[in-house]
Amino acid sequence: MTVYLLCFVLFLVGLYGVITRRNLIKIAISLSIMEFSIFLILVLIGYIDNGLAPIVDPGSNAQVYVDPLPQAMVLTAIVIGLATTAMLMAIAIRLYRKYKTFDIREIKNLRG
């Protein structure tokens, strides 16, 4: 149970970063940290004690393998995480070239 709690603390650290920082780069970093904690908790749920990595050895039978389904899901999520981070960074550098700052308090031309 301690591991799950620590994972959640890592998630809360990322959430704290998202809601308190005013710098676009820091917000992107905090979002990545939240992502990482979710990946870890999903893989932890699928872990089995003394289980093998989910790669079948044809020679031996009756082995216990860890759950492959959370791993397949996290693999997809990691790649999509890279896509979102790359988009965020592209938007951040565009905004910096226009406003000369990463401060989201000064970037308010989009305000209605």
């Binding site: 990946f39 791993q71 996290v74 693999l75 990691i78 981070t85």
Partner: peptide
């Protein structure tokens, strides 16, 4: 440590790119 070698490979590549 959690027996997920595929994830470790993908994560190390993607972390470096990020």
């Amino acid at each position: 440590l959690l027996k997920a070698p595929d994830l470790a490979i993908v994560q190390i590549v993607i972390e470096t790119i990020t």
